[in-house]
Amino acid sequence: VGDQVLEIVPSNEEQIKNLLQLEAQEHLQLDFWKSPTTPGETAHVRVPFVNVQAVKVFLESQGIAYSIMIED
C-alpha cells in the first residue's frame, strides 16, 4: 500500500476553509492537484501513505465527502 489520491467534495464554504487549512499543514506533505474553490466541486489531493489515515479521520470528523481516486 502506498500513497493515495483522494477525490474530495466539499459541500459548503466552511468545508472549503477546512480543506485550505489542511493544505497549509506542511508536515502532512499533501499535494493538491486541484484545490477546493467552490462547494460541490471536486478537489484532488495526493496523500503520502504515512498520512492517509490522519487525513481520512480529519475529513470524516468534518463531514467532508471523499473517495479514493487512485490507490498506489
Score class of each variant (00 low, 15 high):
Glu23Arg: 12
Pro10Val: 09
Asn51Tyr: 15
Gly40Trp: 08
Glu41Asn: 07
Pro10Glu: 01
Met69Gln: 07
Thr37Gln: 07
Gly40Tyr: 09
Arg46Met: 07
Met69Gly: 05
Val1Arg: 14
Asn51Ala: 11
Met69Val: 10
Trp33Met: 14
Glu41Ser: 08
Gln25Tyr: 10
Asp72Gln: 12
Thr37Leu: 06
Asp3Trp: 13
Ala54Ser: 09
Ala24Ser: 11
Asp3Asn: 13
Asn51Leu: 07
Trp33Leu: 15
Thr37Glu: 06
Ile8Ser: 01
Glu23Thr: 15
Leu28Cys: 05
Pro39Val: 12
Leu6His: 00
Met69Ser: 06
Thr37Ile: 05
Gln21Cys: 07
Leu6Lys: 00
His27Val: 06
Asp3Tyr: 11
Val52Pro: 00
Pro36Trp: 03
Ala43His: 07
Thr42Asp: 03
Phe32Ile: 04
Gln25Met: 15
Phe32Gly: 02
Pro39Thr: 04
Val52Ala: 07
Val47Asn: 01
Ser67Arg: 11
Glu41Asp: 09
Val5Tyr: 10
Ala54Pro: 05
Ser67Trp: 09
Leu30Phe: 04
Ser67Val: 13
Ile8Gln: 01
Thr42Gln: 06
Asn12Met: 03
Gln53Glu: 14
Asn12Glu: 03
Ala24Gln: 14
Lys34Glu: 07
Val45Gly: 01
Gln62Met: 14
Val55His: 00
Val50Glu: 13
Ile8Arg: 00
Val9Tyr: 11
Val55Phe: 14
Ser61Ala: 11
Asp31Trp: 07
Ala24Pro: 03
Ala65Gly: 06
Phe49Trp: 12
Met69Tyr: 10
Tyr66Val: 03
Arg46Ala: 07
Thr42Ile: 08
Pro36Tyr: 02
Val45Thr: 01
Ala65Asp: 14
Asn51Thr: 06
Pro36Gly: 03
Glu14Ala: 11
Glu7Leu: 14
Pro39Arg: 03
Val50Phe: 14
Val52Asn: 04
Leu59Trp: 01
Leu28His: 03
Lys56Phe: 06
Gln53Lys: 07
Ile68Gly: 03
Val45Asn: 01
Ile64Lys: 00
Pro39Trp: 04
Thr38Gly: 07
Val5Glu: 05
Glu26Lys: 12
Ser11Ala: 15
Gln53Gly: 10
Val5Gly: 03
Leu19Met: 04
Arg46Gln: 06
Asp31Ser: 08
Pro48Tyr: 03
Asn12Leu: 02
Pro48Gly: 04
Asn12Phe: 02
Gly63Pro: 01
Leu22Ser: 02
Ala54Gly: 04
Pro10Thr: 04
Pro48Asp: 04
Asn12His: 03
Ala43Asn: 04
Glu60Gly: 04
Thr42His: 08
Pro48Glu: 04
Lys17Ile: 14
Ala54Thr: 12
Thr42Val: 14
Asn12Ser: 15
Lys17Met: 15
Asn18Tyr: 15
Lys17Asp: 07
Ala65Trp: 08
Ile70Asp: 12
Tyr66His: 04
His44Trp: 12
Asp3Glu: 07
Glu71Ser: 13
Arg46Gly: 03
Phe32Asp: 02
Glu60Thr: 09
Ser35Pro: 12
Ser35Ala: 13
Ala24Arg: 12
Lys17Val: 11
Val55Leu: 11
Ile16Leu: 14
Phe58Thr: 03
Ser67Ile: 10
Leu59Cys: 03
Val52Asp: 02
Val9Asp: 03
Glu13Asp: 10
Leu30Ser: 03
Glu14Trp: 15
Ala65Val: 10
Val1Ser: 13
Glu23Gly: 12
Leu6Glu: 00
Ile70Gly: 13
Tyr66Cys: 01
Val5Ser: 06
Asn51Asp: 06
Val45Ala: 04
Pro39Gly: 04
Ala65Lys: 13
Asn18Met: 15
Gln29Phe: 07
Ile8Tyr: 01
Glu26Leu: 11
Trp33Arg: 07
Tyr66Ala: 01
Ala24Trp: 14
Trp33Gln: 11
Ile8Asn: 00
Ala43Gly: 04
Asn51Arg: 05
Gly40Pro: 02
Glu71Asn: 10
Met69Cys: 06
Gln62Ser: 13
Glu14Pro: 03
Tyr66Lys: 00
Ala24Leu: 12
His44Asp: 02
Asn18Leu: 15
Gln4Trp: 14
Val57Ala: 14
Gly63Val: 02
Pro48Val: 03
Thr42Ser: 13
Glu7Asn: 08
Ile68Cys: 04
Leu59Tyr: 01
Glu41Pro: 03
Thr42Glu: 04
Ser11Cys: 08
Tyr66Gly: 00
Ser35Trp: 14
Leu22Thr: 02
Phe49Pro: 04
Ser35Phe: 14
His44Asn: 06
Gly63Ser: 07
Ala43Arg: 02
Leu28Phe: 10
Val45Lys: 00
Pro36Phe: 03
Ser61Trp: 06
Leu19Ala: 01
Gln29Ala: 12
Gly63Cys: 05
Pro39Leu: 04
Ile68Thr: 07
Asn18Phe: 13
Glu60Met: 06
Ala24Phe: 09
Gln21Gly: 10
Met69Thr: 05
Leu59Glu: 00
Leu20Thr: 06
Val55Ile: 09
Gln62Cys: 09
Ala65Tyr: 12
Gln25Lys: 07
Asn51Phe: 09
Gln15Met: 04
Thr37Tyr: 06
Gly63Ala: 05
Asn51Glu: 05
Gly2Pro: 14
Glu41Thr: 07
Ile16Cys: 06
Ala43Leu: 15
Gln53Leu: 12
Glu13Cys: 07
Glu13Leu: 14
Gln53Asn: 10
Lys34Gly: 05
Val9Glu: 05
Pro10Ser: 03
Gln29Asn: 13
Gln25Arg: 08
Asn12Ile: 02
Gly63Trp: 03
Leu22Asn: 02
Gly40Asp: 04
Gln4Thr: 14
His44Phe: 14
Val45Asp: 00
Glu13Ala: 10
Ser35Gly: 13
Glu23Ala: 15
Asp3Ala: 14
Asp31Ala: 07
Val1Trp: 14
Glu13Phe: 11
Leu22Gly: 03
Val1Gln: 14
Tyr66Met: 02
Gln4Val: 14
Leu20Pro: 01
Phe58Ser: 02
Glu41Cys: 06
Pro36Glu: 02
Thr38Pro: 01
Gln25Phe: 09
Asn12Arg: 03
Val52Met: 10
Val5Ile: 11
Lys56Gln: 06
Leu30Asp: 01
Leu30Asn: 01
Leu22Glu: 01
Gly2His: 11
Ile70Pro: 10
Ile8Lys: 00
Thr38Met: 12
Phe49Leu: 11
Glu23Leu: 13
